[in-house]
Design a protein around this nucleic acid. Structure first.
Lengths: 193, 193
DNA sequence: TAAATAAACGGAATCGGATTCCGATTCTGT
DNA sequence: ACAGAATCGGAATCCGATTCCGTTTATTTA
C-alpha cells in the first residue's frame, strides 16, 4: 500500500503481444469502420482483428474510445500531410487551400470515418496532440497568409475548424461539389485564389 | 384484395386522442432532448409525455425518427423566422446575417437539439418541406444579395448549408464566439456588412 | 532451461436499452 | 347504447455493448 501510493509506478514496458494486438485492433477497426461506417459492431471489429472482444476492450475502454482513436489516427496522418505538403508552400494561401482540399479528399474517400475525423478536428475534449497538431498547422498557415496579405487579418483557427466541420457535414450528405465549397470557404477567409 | 390494391385508401381522419398523443409525445421529446441531450432514453420521453412506450412507437417508428421529427419541428420554426424577419429586410445581406445569427442563437440556447437541428438542415434525406423551406429562404436571400452586389455571384445554397453545419459543430463544442464565426462566414459569402 | 509471476487472452454471461406484441381500453359511426 | 376499428400500455423480447474470469502466454528469475 505504502509503495503503491508513493512510488510513481515503474511502468514496465507493455508486453510485446499486447502492443501488437493493440495495433491489430486499431487497424482492423479502421478498415471495418471505413467500409461499414462507424455503426459497425464490436464483435465484427474483433473478428476482423482476429481477436476476442475482451481483447478489444482491454485496449480501448469502449466503442466510443475506439472510434475516437481511429479518427485521431487518421487525423494525425492529415496533419502530417499538412506539415510536409502544405506548410512548405511558397504561398500560404495555397498551402491552406491544399490542406483543406486534402481533408475534403479524405472525408470523401473514407465516408465511414468521416464522423470520427470530424470529431477529431472539432471536439472540445483535450484530445491532445492530434487536435493540437491540426490547429498548429492551421495557425501557421493563417499567420503567414496574413503577412502575405492573402488572408483576412481577423481570421482565426476557429474559422478553419468551422470550415472543416461544415465540409464534413456536406460531404457526408450530398457529396456534391465539395471542391467548390472549399474554394468558396477559402475565398471567405480572404484567400484570393 | 381487389379493393385494397386499387383504391387509394380513403384515409379516415386519425382519431382525436391519437393526434393529441402524437403532439404530446413530440413536445415531450423536444423538452427532454433539449434538457438532457438526444441520448435521453425512450422510456424517459414516454414518461414525460404521460404515455406508454408503445404509444411513442405507434407515432414514431423508432428513436431516430423521433429525434429527426423534433429537429424538423425546430427547423420549421427557424424557417418561419427567416420568412417573417429576414426575407423582408431591405438589405438581403443583412437578412442573411440575421438568418444565420438566429440559427446560431437557437443552436447555442438549445444545445441538446443541436444535432437534430443540424441534421434537419444538412441531411440528404428527402426530409421534405423543412429542408426545402430552409433552402428556399437561403436561396432568395442569396439571389437578392447578388442583385444588390453584396453577395459573391458564385455563392450557392450549399455554401449556406455548410456554414450552418459548421456553426452547429463549433457551437456544440467550444460555444465560444460563434457570433464572430457567423460574421466571418458572411464576409466569406461576400456579404460586406 | 525451467519455474514463478504478472499480464493478456477469449468468449460466454450479463446488462441496458430499443423495439415488438398483444390483451385491455377508448373512440367513432350507426 | 353497440359494434368495430384504432389506440393504449407496458411486460416480454431482442440485440449489441461491456464485464468477468478461467485459461494461455510473455517475461523475469533462479
Amino acid at each position: 500500500m505504502a509503495a503503491s501510493s508513493t512510488s510513481p509506478a515503474p511502468q514496465r514496458r507493455p508486453r510485446a503481444d499486447a502492443e501488437r494486438n493493440r495495433t491489430r485492433v486499431l487497424d482492423a477497426a479502421r478498415e471495418v469502420f471505413r467500409a461499414r461506417g462507424d455503426e459497425a459492431q464490436m464483435p465484427e471489429v474483433a473478428r476482423a482483428a482476429g481477436v476476442g472482444v475482451g481483447t478489444v476492450y482491454r485496449h480501448f475502454p469502449n466503442r466510443a474510445a475506439l472510434i475516437a482513436a481511429v479518427g485521431e489516427q487518421r487525423q494525425a496522418e492529415i496533419v502530417e500531410f499538412g506539415r510536409t505538403a502544405c506548410l512548405p508552400r511558397a504561398k500560404a494561401s495555397e498551402g491552406l487551400a491544399a490542406y483543406l482540399e486534402h481533408i475534403g479528399e479524405v472525408l470523401g474517400a473514407e465516408r465511414g470515418l468521416s464522423a470520427s475525423i470530424e470529431a477529431a478536428f472539432g471536439s472540445a475534449e483535450p484530445t491532445g496532440e492530434g487536435r493540437a497538431g491540426a490547429e498548429d498547422v492551421a495557425a501557421r498557415l493563417l499567420a503567414r497568409g496574413k503577412e502575405e496579405g492573402t488572408v483576412r487579418p481577423d481570421a482565426e483557427v476557429g474559422d478553419v475548424v468551422m470550415i472543416v466541420c461544415g465540409l464534413a457535414a456536406v460531404i457526408r450528405n450530398d457529396a456534391g461539389d465539395w471542391r467548390r465549397y472549399v474554394h468558396n470557404a477559402c475565398a471567405g477567409l480572404g484567400t484570393s485564389g
